[in-house]
Write a protein that binds this DNA or RNA. Structure first.
Lengths: 105, 105
DNA sequence: ACCTTATGGTTTGTATTACAAACTAGTTTG
DNA sequence: CAAACTAGTTTGTAATACAAACCATAAGGT
């Protein structure tokens, strides 16, 4: 078993595969909730890119975005959904197989 | 050492990161030379996509494309260059680190 | 009071892309 | 000689990833 079919790679979840979002989802997978500025510091992305990547993850149902004011300043809080965690785990598992294949060359 | 900075992920070589090309380069890394139809069978890509991905890899200097006639039929032979092998190895090494990070969550 | 700067973002513009579908060129088969 | 097969390339298009411009509010400086 575990016959890794390289062709499966072309069906990898591109929403997570995209490097910027892989950074974001990896961070969000490990913390219950993270705010925009924290994510920006950790990811190194510009505000604009971070904003649009977060929107895409939200549209896909992978994260939830909650907005509030903290000490008179706007705050955007992001958290992974169950769907998002599952997608991340699937991607991780699939890519582990791929890397096993690649390393086993 | 080996402090994996997740942010480095955003600088990953997208020419190889793209799933279709990761399939192609993984195949080409293991064989000295492969023809178009073999690559198509192995990758599961359509001719059109395979053709354009190969062109991109060639433009990047990652592979060489050689054309000849075999039994009156055109044959396109692809082989990885030294540059391509290096790029593939760099990608592999970098992504192994990333996956270690992701798995170590 | 009013500029300037800082904070925390979103929207817009653009060049690149990845894919499918259409096309090309030559060959074999009926 | 027409239809179908082989081996690809080119074209059209919708989606993308990024940067740059923009917006709103708050806080300081003078």
């Amino acid at each position: 078993m575990s016959e890794v079919d390289l062709r499966d790679l072309t069906e990898v979840d591109r929403l997570i595969h995209e490097p910027a979002r892989l950074v974001i989802t990896t961070i969000l997978y490990t913390v219950k909730e993270a705010d925009f500025t924290f994510l920006q510091r950790e990811s190194g992305l510009t505000k604009g890119n971070l904003s649009s990547h977060l929107s895409k993850l939200e549209e896909a149902g992978y994260i939830t975005i909650r907005k509030q004011f903290l000490e008179k300043k706007p705050q955007t809080l992001c958290a992974m959904t169950k769907t998002g965690r599952k997608a991340f785990e699937d991607y991780r598992d699939q890519f582990n197989q791929i890397m096993k294949h690649i390393n086993g060359v």
